[in-house]
Design a binder for these strands. Structure first.
Lengths: 197, 197
DNA sequence: ATTATCTATAGATCTATAGATAATGC
DNA sequence: ATTATCTATAGATCTATAGATAATGC
């Protein structure tokens, strides 16, 4: 008498479906990097995985649902539990990011679009930054206590830390040869660690 | 025997035309802030100035031409000659920006879109950042000479300065109540002025 | 003649719905 | 029965071109 959805799904089919979904999300990530969310058509994503646009809508009922899935799956801040971040790991993350322009471009394009009204990623980014700042406060506090050497509190340094990471990404994406994103970020960490004069 | 275009334009008409153009650019600025460039339709801009979409195309032959005009007219970095910028004026600029979310939103949205391929503002922003970084180097050098108190060279501090300004704008646009953009920027300037430990 | 505007419209898209068809696996 | 896909298509847009019409000012 099982009436639930799950009972009708064979395991192998569920796996096939999940793989297809993942394939689609990868394609969506690429297309969004190239054209932004508003410029990314379902047709372009579908084509990349050898489906028709209507075939793709079998996996995600709307374009917005697909975006949400991309955001949830690929957010780097979700990957690691808060308690495991440390300043030197942030530097490693920036190093790593400088080797994957694609993902950085997707998120930078989405962040930019998200400040416009009624953008479907707006709430996601608002919440995400709230979280990220809180995480940064935690990292800074566990590294420096209630005052950084400069005299700044963790609460006041956190938005700067986040701003530098994001701002450097834009400069780097526009001119990768001229902007040393990872080096600049380390410079900033050095600055944070220096004493007030 | 005057064959040039200008000879056929009456002064008053030219002024009318210029005013209309300016009106359109103001409307375009607003619509881009609300929907980004890709999401901004000529029709929406036209409606705001009481024109049909085709009427608007009398002033700007293509949508892209309108964007270029917006960028050229409203770039804050064009407003002041390079030699007149100083660090404290940058702080004032950030104060000022925190009172005009509209313009900040337009440029932040455009910057975000511009990292996508073939975006018509891409070259503009690439060149602009090149310039802005060079200006910042000049400002930092005239303030501190060849080494900042932290030991950083002006060349290495410049991208950080720019990154902080841009990055803070995104956080502030998404949560104006929670992010003190101007305060954070001043914190960063303090940091830049502190000695190496 | 030039300028500002309009109507009409071509030609591309784009998202989403409806419903058919074939394969899969309890 | 469920799942994965497809074809057909409605209904909205959107940009840009062509060409008409009225006003303006040398």
């Amino acid at each position: 008498m099982c009436m639930s959805y799950g009972c009708y799904m064979s395991t192998t089919r569920a796996i096939r479906g999940a793989e297809r979904r993942a394939e689609i999300l990868r394609a969506a990530l690429e297309v969004i990097a190239e054209r932004g969310y508003r410029g990314a058509s379902l047709g372009a994503v579908a084509e990349r995985v050898g489906l028709t646009q209507q075939g793709l809508l079998h996996y995600f009922p709307t374009k917005e649902a697909m975006l949400v899935a991309v955001l949830e799956e690929r957010d780097q801040w979700d990957a690691m539990p808060d308690s495991h971040w440390r300043l030197d790991l942030l530097a490693s993350l920036v190093d790593y990011n400088s080797m994957r322009a694609g993902i950085v471009q997707t998120f930078s394009a989405l962040l930019g679009e998200s400040v416009t009204e009624e953008h479907p990623a707006r709430d996601f980014f608002t919440g995400r930054y709230e979280n990220v700042r809180a995480n940064m406060v935690g990292i800074l506090r566990s590294e420096y206590g209630e005052r950084l050497p400069s005299g700044l509190t963790p609460e006041r340094a956190a938005p700067l830390l986040v701003a530098v990471m994001d701002g450097l990404q834009y400069q780097w994406l526009l001119a990768p040869e001229k902007v040393d994103m990872a080096g600049a970020f380390r410079d900033f960490l050095t600055l944070l660690g220096e004493k007030e004069s």
